[in-house]
Design a protein around this nucleic acid. Structure first.
Lengths: 169, 169
DNA sequence: TATGAAAAGATAATCCC
DNA sequence: GGGATTATCTTTTCATA
């Protein structure tokens, strides 16, 4: 449970969260290390949970999913059982790609991918409104995606003040 | 540019977007195919752009990034040059992980990851408010992440009415 | 404790059917 | 699409510092 990352670990993570198809040798080369230590570090980063998983990112629009909508939802008080059921429902709807409980007037912020407006309209009435306790749904349709990344900010070499660098662990 | 996916392609995509660390042989086995055709299909799905890339998903909280915030931003009219500069700025800030232009009262919806409230406060004043044309920032802090996935909904075997299935291509 | 070189094993990529 | 071959990469072992 040694819990600190050195500069080399961070460079490995930075590369892998941009492109996990790199071979160990290529990656080792990029960071000026030989294969074995590079491989062991990757293994350790996996074992310690810094790397959660490795996934393929698909082209949303090529799959006909041209729309993305943020839906803000007002939910009434739920007991623990209802809450668990709610969360299970959310996870069973593949078109809901993100869901957060949030501070403020509305209780949930969810991100939905959809093929078109008609589909989404049905989705709101047939799926969202039927989730337990849902009282109100306010939808914000996106016009364009200016940025979408799965990459987390990591402390950078220059010691620049980034999010990841400012937190004492 | 043959543009249709059969049931096997979809099963391959489904597996890979959940776990891209599967070997071709393992994947082939899961879908009842032998290695060569499975490999060729994966290659084709890559070439045709259905698979955009392969990334490592890191553990946000292990990196000290415990907060996620949706910031809705009002931006004044921008000409093309300013717009391009804006988009470049967004892409240069690693803590901004998603950014969409949206319909409605406010113009942009961005998702930010941050270590703590203090960091985020500084970020709003030192970074967000200094982006060209920004007039107003409204922040919604998330309390908990109920779902986050990079996986897109794909048409399913049963012919269930999913988002991906309803769009004619 | 970490590295590098090299062997052993597994996988990816190509061939032919 | 399948089977077999080759090339490449991953993983282990071992020697070194």
């Amino acid at each position: 449970m040694s819990d600190d990352l050195d500069a080399i670990d961070l460079r490995i993570l930075e590369h892998l969260q941009q492109d996990a198809s790199l071979s160990t040798a290529e990656l080792a080369d990029k960071i000026g290390l030989s294969q074995s230590p590079c491989w062991r570090r990757i293994q350790r980063l996996r074992d310690e949970g810094y790397i959660k998983r490795q996934v393929a990112i698909l082209d949303r629009t090529k799959l006909g999913l041209d729309m993305q909508i943020f839906a803000q939802i007002k939910v009434g008080r739920l007991d623990d059982t209802e809450r668990a059921a709610f969360e299970r429902s959310i996870n069973n709807v593949p078109e809901i790609v993100e869901c957060y409980s949030v501070f403020g007037e509305l209780d949930l912020m969810i991100k939905v991918v959809a093929p078109d407006v008609r589909w989404y309209q049905e989705f709101v009435f047939d799926t969202l409104m039927k989730l337990p306790g849902v009282q109100d749904v306010r939808s914000v349709m996106t016009l364009s995606e200016m940025k979408y990344t799965t990459a987390m900010p990591l402390p950078r070499k220059g010691g620049a003040r980034t999010a990841a660098a400012s937190k004492k662990r």
